[in-house]
């Protein structure tokens, strides 16, 4: 088998996967909030995303200190989680194509829904790994947001779409800070990562045994907000107070995407 055939096969495989990923099933039309149906008996697993500021639960507009001792607040924090898989010995099962996780958003008034939770149905069995991505894959990112029903996570109504760039925003964080230490939160920051280049996948080792006696599980995925700016790389928020899709300065979006990816913890 020469190189050419290999790449052809890869291309076909990729096409098939992406087709499988895009094929809008009934439950996708319903808004994708219900978990994907899986054959046979399955367990209900809830993935909960929790953010902290210096160990305390993140709250809308609550002051906290960054590692430089400056006061800051978060006014909006939401991101896409997509392509959630569980696997055992390398064989994976797709559980969720895309969900929008909202941790802080003053415009979300519907408190009946837990916007930081993703409900999953996992077939009974043993698993050793859970994998998911932050952002949307190439196919989802190329979709037309006006074609989804309004409650769908990819709908234009989620306000996660850059009309100008024709792409989705993957991770959005906005707020205010006091960079000059004068006691007033007059510095504004806002970062919306996006473009296929900011898609990040995370995989955790996780032993799961799901059966009739253990059919409800909760997976907590935690992260510290400060780690988003002060992680593997540090973002100078005073110098670069925002990023909204300018390809020339995409470095800023990379720092946030990488730091967030590294900062996620499963327990």
């Amino acid at each position: 088998m020469n190189m050419n055939t290999v790449s052809k096969i890869t291309a076909i495989l990729m096409l098939v996967t992406s087709l499988a990923l895009t094929s809008c099933s009934k439950e996708e039309e319903m808004g994708c909030w219900p978990p994907l149906d899986v054959p046979g008996d399955s367990a209900n697993v809830i993935m909960i995303f929790n953010a902290t500021t210096n160990g305390q639960p993140l709250e809308l507009l609550k002051n906290f200190k960054d590692p430089l001792g400056r006061t800051m607040q978060v006014e909006l924090l939401k991101f896409y989680v997509s392509n959630v898989f569980v696997s055992f010995n390398g064989a994976s099962t797709l559980l969720k194509k895309a969900a929008l996780v909202i941790l802080v958003d003053p415009n979300v008034t519907d408190t009946t829904k837990k916007h930081n939770e993703i409900a999953l149905k996992i077939p009974y069995g043993n698993y050793d790994r859970i994998t998911f991505s932050v952002g949307l894959d190439v196919v989802q990112n190329a979709g037309d947001p006006t074609k989804y029903p309004s409650a769908h996570p990819l709908s234009i109504n989620q306000n996660t779409y850059w009309d100008a760039w024709g792409k989705y925003k993957f991770f959005m964080i906005e707020g205010k800070g006091d960079w000059d230490g004068d006691g007033t939160l007059t510095n504004i920051y806002g970062y919306h990562t996006g473009f296929d280049e900011c898609y990040r996948s995370i995989s955790f080792e996780k032993m799961l045994t799901l059966d009739a006696t253990n059919s409800n599980e909760t997976l907590n995925v935690n992260f510290e907000v400060n780690d988003v700016f002060f992680g593997k790389d540090t973002l100078d928020m005073k110098l670069h107070p925002s990023w909204h899709g300018d390809i020339n300065t995409i470095e800023t979006a990379f720092i946030i995407s990488d730091n967030f990816q590294e900062g996620l913890r499963l327990n």
């Binding site: 415009n107 947001p145 234009i156 306000n159 779409y161 850059w162 009309d163 100008a164 300018d246």
Partner: peptide, 22 residues
């Protein structure tokens, strides 16, 4: 300075020039 007017954040054209938010 790269000029821009920043209007699309809240008045995005695909959502009919409003994000429907406050």
């Amino acid at each position: 300075v790269i000029p821009g007017a920043d209007c699309f954040h809240c008045h995005g054209d695909l959502s009919d020039f409003t994000d429907n938010l406050f």
